[in-house]
């Protein structure tokens, strides 16, 4: 069944789901390294099928260790994890992965590198490898550089080749560890577009990043890691929903403005010199504005401030986020 689907299916299209459950489930997943350092601490994670799941956290928060455990590269000290509800050896052919940056044979061409990794997959067919490699290269825009040796690739080309390697077969799940690392803004946009396209085809995408903006733009769900522990997870909406949207009024009559906002029923009114903010709640911003103007408050500016993941993170951890990596 799978075989037929793989031969017939488009290389980067979604494979038929092997299990209707979650794409990734971890339960109590723990990794302590020999030095006694706990890289991942009792991680419970459920990645729904079809989601684009952002795995967020500062560098060194245990994201890569988790991904290595998911792929069977590292044995967990405790807990379990499963991909696609299958034993690891059966799941991995349906999973494309980019782990901790690209790694290829420098003396081989891009195309030969992809063939090499395809040969390692016991379910991949040698008969279709040429077509699949060609399509994967085209997908990431490397067709022109297919015959070039990997050592002559630029950083961005290397990253794209690694993504191509993850797209060699029909995948149900893509695990991308920092996929935009080393890419220029143009490359970053391309990767985001590619991820969205792949996800639209039904493939679950699990993408780790230390860049909040990236996750906010790409993902439907996210989990936030900090020093090996899961801090929060859920849909992007529910995560940022935990913090209220606020209205910020710029005015010289701060006291009056605060009074008006309180009278309107807005909660958590805070006033400072020249500005007043409050939780917007269910109120329409234009009505708030009309009320302020009606009461004679000089409104110089009015803005609706939506909370970002960064606010969520700061709210949850009380610390700033390593935004720039």
């Amino acid at each position: 069944m799978t075989t037929v689907a793989q031969e017939a299916g488009a290389p980067t299209g979604a494979a038929p789901p092997s299990d209707p459950g979650a794409a990734i489930v971890t339960s109590g997943l723990t990794k302590r390294f020999r030095g006694g350092q706990t890289a991942v601490d009792a991680l419970d994670l459920t990645v729904p099928r079809g989601s684009v799941y952002g795995f967020l956290g500062p560098n060194g928060s245990g994201k890569t260790t988790t991904i290595r455990m998911l792929l069977g590269l590292i044995t967990p000290t405790g807990g379990t994890c499963s991909l696609l509800g299958l034993p690891l050896a059966l799941a991995l052919p349906r999973v494309g992965a980019l782990v901790e940056g690209p790694a290829f044979y420098p003396y081989l061409t891009g195309e030969a590198n992809l063939r090499r990794f395809d040969a390692a997959d016991p379910t991949a067919s040698g008969a279709t490898v040429r077509r699949r490699v060609g399509e994967a290269l085209e997908r990431v825009g490397l067709t022109a550089a297919a015959g070039k040796r990997y050592r002559n690739y630029s950083l961005g080309m290397r990253q794209r080749l690694a993504i191509a390697a993850a797209l060699l077969g029909p995948r149900e799940l893509l695990i991308l560890d920092e996929p935009t690392n080393g890419l220029d803004p143009q490359g970053t946009r391309e990767v985001r577009a590619l991820v969205k396209e792949i996800a639209a085809g039904g493939t679950t995408v699990f993408v780790s990043s230390h860049l909040l903006a990236e996750v906010e733009q790409m993902c439907t769900h996210a989990a936030i890691m900090r020093t090996g522990r899961l801090v929060a997870d859920g849909t992007i909406a529910s995560l940022s929903g935990g913090l209220a949207t606020r209205v910020s009024v710029e005015t010289p009559d701060a006291a009056d403005a605060a009074r008006v906002l309180a009278a309107l029923g807005l909660a958590d009114v805070r006033s400072a010199a020249g500005a007043v903010t409050a939780e917007l709640g269910g109120h329409a911003p234009e009505r708030v504005n009309a009320a302020l103007v009606g009461e004679g408050v000089a409104v110089r500016g009015l803005a609706v401030v939506r909370p970002s993941l960064e606010d969520v993170f700061v709210g949850l951890t009380g610390e700033g986020f390593d935004v720039d990596g």
């Binding site: 069977g72 590269l73 992965a97 997959d121």
Partner: peptide
């Protein structure tokens, strides 16, 4: 050393097989 081992194993080449 080259990092290709992780991609071979994730392919999955299988450790005994590799």
């Amino acid at each position: 050393g080259g990092g290709t081992l992780r991609y071979l194993l994730a392919a999955p080449a299988g450790r005994t097989r590799l």
